[in-house]
Each structure stands twice: as structure tokens, then as C-alpha cells.
Amino acid sequence: MTNKHTLEKRGIRWNEYFIRSGLGLCTLSSVVTTGVIIYILVKESLDFFTEVPLMDFLFGTQWVPLFEPSSYGVLPLLWGTLVITVGAAFIALPVGLASAVYISEYASPKVRTIVKPLLELLAGIPTVVYGYFALTFVTPLLRSVFPGFNVFNALSGAIVVGIMILPTVATLSDNALRAVPDTLRQGAYALGATSFEVTTQVVVPTGLSGIMASFLLAISRAVGETMAVTLAAGATPSLSLSMQESIQTITAYIVQVSLGDTPAGGIAYKTIFAVAGLLFVITLALNTLSQWILSRYQAEYD
């Protein structure tokens, strides 16, 4: 006799089991890929550091890995990355935040529905196009105003990277501002505040964690940006303060070696793993910091 009210198990639900495993495998694939990348970076970098002392690498001021007498001081490459990143941030952070404030707080819904997708489109342009844009438009413009500019120069690279990361700042900051509850705006307006006071003293401070996170993500994109800076800023490792000169970023160096005929296995070849490892640490730190800022402050108002 079967009891239709029984609560006993009838056996394993196999379809549930397969769905669960399938989904798990998909997730695992990206985790494994990341793990393999980190493993290779660490292994090859360790090889490199058996030949070049870590301190010479981190604090050396000459980067001449491909010619004799070679020198492996990474500071010129770091400097190049820093110049591009800081220059780009100078353009993208204020303009991006101002755009976000406009879209979120001032624009009519109609304007917003047009402008926001346009900004997102800007974020979808392949970076090589930005490099091309730098070479064929920004650099000639700079040279027509300041004849001293090199064909490859840091300023042109910083400008296009700035334009490139601007949509990241604008759209993520806009999201952060729009997440600020409308009741706060109303509360502020009800105290006789103007739009500007409401925006600058209530909305922006409330959305600050999201804004800071957008800044850090954009900066981390600028640090890792490759094609545009390789095309715009050239391949001259230098500690020069002049934005008119060619520089080389970490990423541009990796491109140079990867595309050239540097034999695999040699010390020159291993340099790209060492600098890539350094790049990885920098962007990981920036991303972790932005995640931390978001999680630290987001819980406060919902």
C-alpha cells in the first residue's frame, strides 16, 4: 500500500544534480583561468628575479632590457604609466563627475535617455581606435599649437586615455548618484535649499562611495590601457617630466616585446612576466580598494 502523504525521499533528483554541476563547472572555468594566469606570472617572475635582484628591478632608473649593457630598473616604465594615468585622471575625473551630476540631477528625462546611451557607446569603442584618433587628430592639433611636441608624446596619450575612461566615470558615478534616495533630495529642498546646494551638499556626499569606486575603476582601466598609449605615446622608457616627449608605459613595453623577435626563454623575454606581475598587483590593489570602499559605505542607507 502506498501512502500518498509520505515525506520520504524518492531518490536523487538527477536533473537538479546535473544543472548544479554544469553551472558550477562554468564558474570554475574562470576561476581556474585566473589561477593559471597568476601561476604563470608568479613562476616566470620568480625565474626572472633569480637573475635580477628585486631591489634593482623596483628601484633602478634605467630600463634597457633588450640591449647590452642591459639594465632592469622598472621605474621609467612605472613613471610612464603614472604620467598617462595621472594625466588621464585629471581630464576624466572632473569632467566625468560633472557629466554624471548633470545627467542625474539636472537633465530632463528626455535628455538623459539620449545622453546616457551615447556615453556608454563611447565606452564601447575599441581602444585601438582611440590610439588612431590620438595619432591622426590629437597629436597634430597639439603640434600645430606647440611645435615642440614629439610625434609620440605623453600628453596625447593622456588625453585620449582620459577621453576613454570618461564614460566609466560618468556612467558609474551617475549610477551612484541615482542610487541616492529621492527622499533625501526632497528633504533638502523642503529646507529651502537650491538645486546646487542639494547636489553638492547632500546628493554627492551621499553617493561619494560609489563615486570614489568609479574613480578607482577608471584609474585602474587607465593603468592597464595598452593599445591607445602604445600608438600615442610611443616606446621610449624615460623618467622625463616633459609631456612633449615620448614615454613608455608598462603595457606598451609588453606589446613591444611580444610583437618583436625577442627569443622566448631568455632573460629579456622573462621581463614581460615581471612587469606584467607588477601591473597585475597594481590593478588588483586598485580594484580591491574600490570594492572595499563600495562595501564599506554602501550598507549605510537603503
Binding site: T183, Q186, G187, A190, L191, G192, V202, E300
Partner: peptide
């Protein structure tokens, strides 16, 4: 309207203190 709201204040349905 800004000057008007200084004279006529408002308390809302849900408490909405500023995160300050």
C-alpha cells in the same frame, strides 16, 4: 519657491535624515 520653502517646512512620510 526656494524662499517659500524656508517659510513652509515639511516632514515626510518616511524619516529621511541626511547621512550626516
Amino acid at each position: 519657491p526656494v524662499a517659500l520653502r524656508r517659510r513652509i517646512g515639511m516632514v515626510f512620510q518616511k524619516p529621511n535624515p541626511f547621512p550626516k
